[in-house]
């Protein structure tokens, strides 16, 4: 453990980084340097940064591998869309509706996090990974056959088809099965995204540097020792997991309300993996790294547009090379006697 003051300095660096980035992007946007496609990426970048920070809480600080975080994003996204669409007349002011939608998305994703966390956190290592993967797929599948609509009598839903919801003639369909949510009013903004990132940083940094955060890190480093010290393992694991899923839900709502349509397929296994890539590439347990990696890797496919068809191929090669370059030094350190110890630790 390093000194506490170092933690707070690191924390301020993160806030500063976000604010500086906001100013830079604003200047670039007003100077019309950004291309349209890059401008359209601003809100998704914010959502991905929040996702990466949230996943880093689970992977980096709690030490559990989750491969289903897109599932929470999906729950948050569709909850956010439902709230935003059904409150359209009640709350005409966009930003207020956005706040309600994000909060609602976070709450529902947190509930999903509790439901999933209770059985899942009993498992360890790769088994936990596969179960979170399974939950992500289940959420995607269920969302794929959900039909939700709203009319003057309130919300209606069905899992068979659009007609069986029994909407009044004036009612609108919000979620239309595999077609997803259509006709969303775009109320997300870059500023809202930046505020969400700052809030996320505030929550995670305070959690990590608190008594609970030290308990979480203790469980990660040695579960048995932590248990022997009287730390309630399940409680603290749940705390990290549910906080992370709530933040993922908030990111989902922000993301969905930036587009006019969102399909459930968007939040599949590949999205979960993409976010994991941000976390690992940025450095596990390193929040600043997560922010930078999420930004660079979201912008990279745009920048690689000059390679046209080859851009995803180049992206893949860059990914592999970066992993090898950043990890091979470690490998050489392991050869100096640490190799067998590390392998045993991973096997245990």
């Amino acid at each position: 453990m390093k000194k506490l003051s170092k933690h707070s300095i690191k924390g301020f660096i993160n806030y500063g980084l976000v604010i500086v980035l906001y100013i830079i992007f604003q200047i670039l946007a007003s100077a019309k340097v950004l291309t349209n496609s890059l401008q359209g990426l601003l809100v998704p970048i914010c959502a991905y940064v929040v996702m990466a920070l949230a996943l880093n809480l689970v992977v980096g600080f709690s030490g559990e591998l989750s491969l289903g975080h897109a599932g929470f994003m999906s729950v948050g996204a569709f909850t956010g869309v439902i709230i935003a669409s059904s409150l359209k007349n009640l709350v005409p002011f966009g930003p207020a509706r956005l706040i309600l939608a994000i909060a609602g998305g976070a709450v529902l994703a947190a509930i999903a996090g509790v439901l999933i966390g209770v059985p899942v956190l009993r498992l360890r290592g790769d088994y936990l990974a596969i179960v979170t993967l399974a939950f992500g797929e289940i959420i995607k599948n269920i969302m794929n056959c959900m039909y939700i609509g709203v009319d003057s009598r309130g919300l209606h839903f069905s899992i068979t088809d659009e007609a069986s919801m029994g909407l009044e003639p004036g009612g609108t369909t919000i979620i239309n099965g595999p077609m997803g949510a259509l006709g969303i009013t775009k109320i997300s903004s870059f500023l809202a995204g930046i505020i969400l990132i700052v809030i996320t940083l505030f929550i995670i940094q305070n959690l990590v540097n608190s008594r609970a955060g030290r308990a979480i890190a203790g469980i990660r480093d040695n579960r048995i020792a932590a248990e022997a010290c009287g730390i309630p393992v399940t409680k603290y694991k749940m705390m990290a997991f549910v906080t992370s899923s709530a933040l993922a839900g908030a990111a989902g709502a922000l993301y969905a309300l930036n587009y006019s349509t969102v399909v459930p397929k968007k939040f599949d296994f590949n999205t979960s993996i993409l976010i994991l890539v941000f976390v690992v590439l940025g450095g596990i347990g390193n929040l600043t790294g997560s922010i930078i990696a999420a930004i660079i890797l979201t912008v990279l496919p745009e920048v690689l547009r000059q390679f046209q068809d080859y851009r995803m191929l180049v992206y893949a090669i860059v990914l592999i090379l970066v992993m090898i370059i950043t990890n091979n030094e470690k490998a050489s350190a392991f050869i100096k006697g640490l190799f067998s110890k590390k392998a045993k630790k991973e096997a245990a």
């Binding site: 590439l281 893949a316 990914l319 950043t326 990890n327 490998a331 392991f334 392998a343």
Partner: peptide, 25 residues
């Protein structure tokens, strides 16, 4: 092979990179 002994997550991400590579190729 260059990642033998690196953290299992690093290898996992590399495998994902290989997967992207094969799909896009």
């Amino acid at each position: 092979k260059p990642l033998r002994g690196a953290s299992s997550l690093a290898v996992l991400i590399t495998a994902i990179g290989v997967s992207y590579f094969l799909q896009n190729a």
